[in-house]
Design a binder for these strands. Structure first.
Lengths: 187, 187
DNA sequence: CTCCACATGTAACCGGTTACATGATTTT
DNA sequence: AAAATCATGTAACCGGTTACATGTGGAG
């Protein structure tokens, strides 16, 4: 599916693999990660499928860049994908929940430690949503004011992140209290 | 990681692949899915690694079952995994958020439809958490009362599910309102 | 008579992760 | 002098999905 994330960004503007990775990092990292190598590979596949084209841009003082541009076929494929309904309630994968579910043999101290680490991490994460939009998004909006409608959607996705982190923190705090008061001490 | 889910369940009691799948379905489906075939395959791998052993149990009127039992090595491997700290804030993958992020070209009607389908699905899902513990869990608790401590953890995981669905519903409702009032009509 | 639950597997494929490989420029 | 940023790739591996393959007994 990274394929579509990339087509989505290239639909806004032409970018190099490296810049694409930056965009992903700034905008979609919390709901869609990707390694740099994977970005390059996917771009290559997209090019051989004729959904994007690339041209080499020479740079002084910097390595050359390969700039990718979406084709009409690519744009069409993106449209098709956007129109498809999403699977009803996507089955998630959470290592944390899985581990917690079976965690009893690990002992009270280990469980509390695990949850505290998570709490700290999510409190940090939550702070990211208290500020303003990421620079990448603001820059894109400034240079392409016709993206105003898109930014409504970006805001909604961002709001999900904020709510998710708030929920996570509340749940972790409550869970810590539950374990502390109800779970038996390690022997 | 399905490997550990299976070891976790076999650590409670010996089970066949088919029954294992049932347990997964009933307890961990919303944070860890698995196809039947994958369960069988993983069991096979676990056996060749010496983490579980199996014996064939003949049945009248039913196909024979292969019952798997965790070994000491298997138990040790589970312990090790449980003790390992979870990666800080696991990077999630959400097709819904990805699609929504880039959804502008799909148009207002399509976006609203998408969100409404999701809302209905999550309202259904949320109802699952209003009732009591699944039968599988209650049966296991009744037959093995020493699992009382485990059930605290099961409750915490279950609570996550409830909070997640509540958050999802609130977010979807708010998003629907936002789109309706701020997103331009299709031409 | 048809569909569902029980019961177990194999094989091809595919998306994504990790490791390997290289190299200049700028910042600390 | 070391570390981070810019910049692009290849190859092995691995967990998981989809499709294929088979067969009985009970319920509607």
């Amino acid at each position: 599916m990274l394929k579509f994330a990339i087509l989505g960004f290239l639909n806004y503007q032409s970018l190099s693999g490296y810049d694409l990775k930056r965009q992903l990092q700034a905008s979609t990292a919390h709901f869609w990660h990707a390694g740099l190598n994977q970005v390059y590979m996917t771009l290559k596949n997209l090019e051989s499928d004729g959904l994007v084209i690339s041209e080499l841009q020479e740079q002084e003082k910097r390595p050359d860049k390969r700039i990718y541009t979406i084709t009409e076929n690519g744009s069409a494929e993106l449209q098709t994908w956007l129109a498809e309904p999403v699977t009803q309630v996507e089955p998630g994968k959470s290592t944390l929940l899985l581990k917690l579910f079976f965690a009893r043999p690990a002992g009270k101290a280990a469980i509390l430690a695990q949850l505290q680490v998570q709490l700290a991490a999510h409190q940090r994460q939550a702070r990211e949503y208290t500020g303003t939009m990421p620079v990448e998004a603001r820059e894109m909006l400034a240079s392409q004011p016709e993206l105003g409608d898109d930014s409504i959607l970006w805001g909604i996705v961002r709001d999900f992140g904020a709510r998710y982190e708030a929920m996570m923190i509340a749940w972790l705090e409550e869970s810590l209290r539950t374990i502390e008061t109800h779970f038996p001490e390690d022997v």
